[in-house]
Design a protein around this nucleic acid. Structure first.
Lengths: 153, 153
DNA sequence: TATCATGTAACTTCTATTATTACATAATAC
DNA sequence: GTATTATGTAATAATAGAAGTTACATGATA
């Protein structure tokens, strides 16, 4: 049961991109995400298709936020990443013939469905602008770094 | 991101055990869970330690429910399985030095925390007795099988 | 035209879970 | 007592999915 950290990582680089004047190359972003440039391009590709970021080729190219931070929620990003499974647990069999298993699945599904609905609602209530505000408050209050290069080596 | 189905599988065999007169061997239960007897013994070991099932060695041995179904909730079973991670997503870095990442983590943690609380509450509200009742209703209403051997053979 | 950056397919590596093997331990049947 | 049956558990192998890497095409700018 590996814990996917794409959402976390993507939000991270999006906020960094928002702080930069020019575009950020996938190589720069890869350092901030501690991963490979190709992985970054693959991952951000979904966001580009959804219109949240823009990418430019060639000299001076790279990645930019394409819309105001106030108009992008965490839910938007989650969906642009392909809405990967939220839960680490699933049913053993999705369409069981066994009545016992049907009862088990029905009970689990109901609980998980409710939790998922709440989670998605909450993610939909948080904008990148709110995250950015929180970030600026942290920097101001605690004298912490925000420079992309310095913060991630 | 593999989806763990232990909880689903364990609930399944617990309800079957509840239907049987005598003890169920791990070999029988393995068939119902489509897995290996050793896996069953390992998995049910946690439930035994928590007092929800009993195991006996030798002739006529096997596994039995140790407490009334009314006194066991899905949350109890989840915990007896070691409370495995509920969510398939996690933070990229748990204690980041980068203020951007701190802001991201804080926002995600809050949403996931709320969803987790709701989910655990719901699991705590469902007893094995309720599942058993649902199962019997399904068998009565739809003329479905409940025999351990027949349903999974 | 050289350089830089993305786009993407193909392939390799990594890692965590699950399955399997092997054997010790304990209880019952004979 | 001995054979049989079942659990308990360590060690190892197989599997699957994600992530990383390589390679090269495409397109933009200096």
């Amino acid at each position: 049961m590996i814990r996917n950290s794409k959402l976390s990582g993507v939000l991270h680089v999006l906020l960094h991109m928002a702080e930069l004047d020019g575009p950020a190359t996938s190589e720069m972003l890869a350092k901030a995400m501690c991963t490979n440039p190709v992985v970054v391009r693959r991952t951000l590709g979904g966001l580009r298709d959804a219109g949240y970021v823009r990418s430019e080729k060639g000299h001076g190219g790279g990645w930019c936020i394409a819309r105001p931070l106030t108009e992008i929620t965490l839910l938007d990003i989650y969906r642009a990443l392909g809405a990967p499974p939220l839960f680490a647990m699933g049913n053993r069999t999705e369409s069981p013939g066994c009545a016992v298993e049907q009862a088990v699945n029905a009970a689990l599904d109901e609980s998980f469905r409710e939790a998922e609905a709440l989670l998605l609602t909450r993610l939909g209530e948080v904008t990148l602008a709110a995250l950015s505000e929180d970030f600026h408050a942290r920097v101001a209050g605690r004298h912490q770094t925000w420079d992309l290069e310095k913060a991630h080596g």
